[in-house]
Write a protein that binds this DNA or RNA. Structure first.
Lengths: 188, 188
DNA sequence: GCCCTTGGTTCAGTCACCGAACCTGTGGTG
DNA sequence: CACCACAGGTTCGGTGACTGAACCAAGGGC
């Protein structure tokens, strides 16, 4: 079907009896974790992934297919007029959030620079601990109760519309409303 | 020097202003996180990585070099007679443990099967929570205070000596004592 | 009728990965 | 001293994945 169908990693992590290795067989390929990250941020449409990630089209199609096969994304018809599908992250995908969060924290702390994004407990506004607990409430905060805000390191005026839409404070998983491209009839 | 020197990912994750993407540029390549996992398990020597991972030699050499350059491993002379170096994981590498742990938990919970390894608080023996806190002590347990034991899913009689050495309960970071190969003069 | 958008597929070129062979420095053994 | 083993690589040919650009197709909107 797609160009990529041998899949996984061609040669898998062979004799690795290890949950980490098995996880990496699914999500360890180039781009895959970034696709999931975007899905958690609310990106759902092929074109939005494409624009935001700058990923080659064929690779994106392959990854979306593979992630759908693995039950990490779900392909869902969202309009019939012109038939259009979106890719919605499943519980299995949401469960990858702690891993992505840990990677992000490592990247920020060990590669220098300002934080790109800040995560807060939506209901009380408190910034989350590295393990997604709310210091104020003392509870583990569910992914859909996490509010994402731009951090000081983030470019305040990005080029692509998806990055712009992601500048506004928003909950994780909340579907992205892509900016409408002004058509010819649209006033500038 | 090595075959891999363009490095990183050839083409980096371009415009990604994101700590996750920056982390993945360093540790997102095939095999890299498994090398770090092994390093945290106490593997230090080229040959032990080679045997345990089943990774092509050139790829391993490239990864060790890259991780050394990034300050995640440190190359250290451990004997002079025949000059031999070992690769020891640094604090920066140790800081990746939460990410690896999160990936492992995801792999176990969402890909089925028995846990391969169990992690306990070394000083009290209590099994750790997903976020490395000790339910008994209520504290965050440092990586070097984590004891690793084989879980029910692990092959009790693996082929390679490194896997065998990793069967014994041991602390993370504790250097691996590789089994000596019996020489001709050695009694069976 | 024409062009635009969305969501792809196809294709040629490049680059990383793979496995096997080879190399080097050193030490042990008969 | 000849010979072999071992650790830690490097080199090399073949394969497969990734890349970027072009092409395709189904619907709408004007």
């Amino acid at each position: 079907m797609t160009t990529v169908d041998g899949m996984a990693l061609g040669k898998d992590y062979a004799a690795q009896e290890c949950s980490i290795a098995r996880a990496l067989e699914i999500v360890g390929e180039r781009w895959t974790l970034l696709v999931i990250r975007d899905a958690l941020y609310g990106v759902r449409r092929y074109n939005d992934f494409l624009v935001h990630l700058g990923i080659p089209r064929a690779v994106l199609a392959g990854r979306l297919q593979a992630l759908t096969d693995e039950g990490i994304l779900e392909k869902r018809r969202y309009q019939d007029a012109p038939p259009r599908d979106e890719y919605v992250v499943t519980d299995r995908g949401i469960a990858l959030w702690p891993a992505l969060r840990a990677l992000g924290i490592w990247g920020r702390e060990h590669l220098g620079g300002q934080p790109m994004r800040v995560f807060r407990h939506a209901s009380c506004g408190t910034e989350l601990s590295p393990y997604d607990t709310c210091p104020a409430c003392g509870t583990l905060v569910a992914v859909r109760d996490i509010e994402m805000r731009p951090g000081p390191g983030l470019d305040p005026d990005p080029a692509d519309p998806v990055s712009r839409a992601l500048l506004a404070p928003r909950r994780l998983l909340q579907p992205l409303e892509s900016e409408q491209q002004p058509t010819a009839a649209d006033p500038a």
